[in-house]
Amino acid sequence: MHYFLTVFQKDGKLSLNATFEFDNDEEAIAHGRQRLEEENCAAMTHRLTRSGKLLIFQR
């Protein structure tokens, strides 16, 4: 399944726009959280989605 991780700056510009594939949501969520930490984006507004389903969201 395709997953999309998007991180926004306060002015609305994109800081990170990544796609990846995993077999299930749990693996994708774990990878998304790890990637946010690696990119120092965990405190920024972000979302992880799959086929329109919101899996992670922080504002």
Rank of each mutant, 00 (worst) to 15 (best):
T49K: 00
L14G: 12
N24F: 12
D23T: 13
L5C: 09
Y3G: 01
T45Q: 11
E39V: 05
M44L: 13
N40Q: 11
R47T: 07
K53Y: 09
K13S: 15
F57K: 01
H46A: 10
F4P: 02
F57A: 04
F8P: 00
Q34R: 04
F4N: 10
F22V: 04
D23K: 07
E37K: 04
G32A: 06
F22G: 08
G52V: 15
R47E: 09
M44T: 00
E26W: 10
D23E: 06
R47H: 03
K53L: 11
L48H: 02
N24S: 11
A30G: 01
K13N: 15
N24Y: 12
H2M: 09
A43I: 03
R35H: 02
D23C: 06
E38S: 13
N24R: 11
C41I: 00
M1W: 06
C41W: 10
T6W: 12
D25H: 03
N17V: 06
A18Y: 11
R33W: 03
S15A: 14
G52R: 15
S15G: 10
E26A: 08
D23W: 00
H31A: 11
E21P: 08
A28H: 04
F20A: 05
R59S: 12
F8N: 01
L14A: 12
S51N: 15
R35E: 07
L5N: 07
E39Y: 07
G32V: 04
S15F: 09
Q34K: 04
T45F: 01
E38A: 13
K53E: 15
S51Q: 15
H31F: 10
D25T: 09
T19Q: 14
I29D: 06
A42G: 00
C41R: 06
F4Y: 09
K13W: 08
K13I: 12
H31N: 14
G12Q: 02
L48K: 01
F4S: 08
G32T: 03
R50W: 06
S15R: 11
L36E: 03
L16N: 13
Y3H: 00
R35K: 02
Q58W: 15
L54H: 14
Q9C: 02
A30P: 07
G32D: 03
L48I: 00
Q34Y: 05
K13L: 15
I29M: 01
H2E: 13
L36H: 04
T45R: 09
Q34D: 07
A30V: 02
Y3F: 08
T45V: 10
E21N: 15
A28M: 05
H31P: 01
S15T: 07
A28C: 05
G52T: 15
G12H: 02
A28Q: 05
E39L: 00
A43P: 01
I29T: 02
L16Y: 06
Q9I: 04
E39Q: 12
V7T: 13
M44Y: 01
